[in-house]
Amino acid sequence: MTMLGPYASFIVTSYALVAAVVLILIGWIAIDYRQQRERLRELEASGVTRRSGRQATDIR
């Protein structure tokens, strides 16, 4: 890390920040996906069906 010069902390901070924000975005989207699927499964288990009659969680 000596090659980064006198402002190494700025460079490392900006890279770390970008990584953190991107990871937060990915995490948020992944968690959201799980939550929505979970709620769909619960709703179907409680007997509500879509008008098309297909499974709501079926995305094939």
Binding site: I29, Y33, L40, A56
Partner: peptide, 25 residues
């Protein structure tokens, strides 16, 4: 990320319509 977020959004709308149907039932 956009495709994944769009998928979430579609599922969220399904949840919403199912909840509305449940409420009306």
């Amino acid at each position: 990320l956009h495709l994944a977020a769009m998928r979430n959004e579609i599922l969220r709308r399904r949840v919403r319509s199912l909840q509305m149907m449940q409420a009306s039932q």
